[in-house]
Computed example of a mutant assay.
Amino acid sequence: MSRVLKERNGPVLRLVLNRPEKHNAFDEVQIDELTRAIDEAENDPSVRLLVLTANGKSFSAGADLDWMRRMAAFSEEENLADAGRLALLLQRLNFIPKPTIAAVQGAAVGGGVGLVSACDIAVGTAQAVFGLTEVRIGLIPATIGPYVVQAIGERAARRYFLTGERFDAATARELGLLHEVVEDLEAAVARYSEMLLQGGPEAQAATKKLIRRVGRGPINVAMIEDTAARIAKVRKGAEAREGIAAFFEKRKPGWQS
Score class of each variant (00 low, 15 high):
residue 106 G to K: 13
residue 106 G to A: 11
residue 107 A to L: 14
residue 108 A to S: 15
residue 111 G to E: 02
residue 113 V to K: 08
residue 113 V to N: 12
residue 115 L to D: 07
residue 116 V to P: 06
residue 117 S to K: 11
residue 118 A to H: 04
residue 119 C to K: 08
residue 120 D to A: 08
residue 121 I to N: 03
residue 122 A to W: 01
residue 123 V to D: 03
residue 123 V to Q: 04
residue 123 V to N: 06
residue 125 T to Q: 12
residue 127 Q to E: 15
residue 127 Q to I: 01
residue 128 A to V: 08
residue 129 V to C: 13
residue 133 T to A: 14
residue 135 V to D: 05
residue 135 V to S: 12
residue 136 R to G: 01
residue 136 R to C: 02
residue 137 I to N: 13
residue 138 G to Y: 07
residue 140 I to L: 13
residue 140 I to A: 15
residue 141 P to I: 01
residue 142 A to I: 01
residue 143 T to E: 15
residue 143 T to D: 14
residue 143 T to Y: 09
residue 143 T to K: 14
residue 145 G to S: 15
residue 146 P to G: 10
residue 146 P to Y: 06
residue 147 Y to Q: 10
residue 147 Y to P: 12
residue 148 V to Y: 02
residue 149 V to Q: 11
residue 150 Q to V: 00
residue 153 G to F: 00
residue 154 E to A: 15
residue 155 R to K: 14
residue 155 R to C: 01
residue 156 A to V: 02
residue 156 A to Y: 01
residue 158 R to P: 00
residue 158 R to N: 12
residue 159 R to N: 08
residue 159 R to V: 11
residue 160 Y to K: 05
residue 161 F to W: 05
residue 163 T to V: 05
residue 163 T to L: 06
residue 165 E to P: 02
residue 169 A to D: 07
residue 169 A to K: 10
residue 170 A to L: 12
residue 170 A to C: 02
residue 174 E to A: 11
residue 175 L to M: 14
residue 175 L to Y: 02
residue 176 G to F: 00
residue 178 L to M: 06
residue 178 L to S: 05
residue 181 V to P: 10
residue 183 E to W: 00
residue 184 D to I: 04
residue 184 D to P: 01
residue 186 E to M: 00
residue 193 S to C: 07
residue 195 M to T: 10
residue 196 L to S: 04
residue 196 L to M: 12
residue 196 L to D: 01
residue 199 G to P: 00
residue 200 G to L: 03
residue 201 P to S: 09
residue 203 A to T: 12
residue 203 A to K: 06
residue 204 Q to Y: 12
residue 205 A to Y: 02
residue 205 A to C: 07
residue 207 T to F: 13
residue 207 T to A: 15
residue 208 K to M: 06
residue 211 I to H: 11
residue 212 R to G: 11
residue 213 R to Y: 10
residue 214 V to N: 08
residue 214 V to Y: 08
residue 215 G to W: 01
residue 215 G to Q: 07
residue 216 R to H: 11
residue 216 R to V: 13
residue 217 G to L: 08
residue 218 P to M: 13
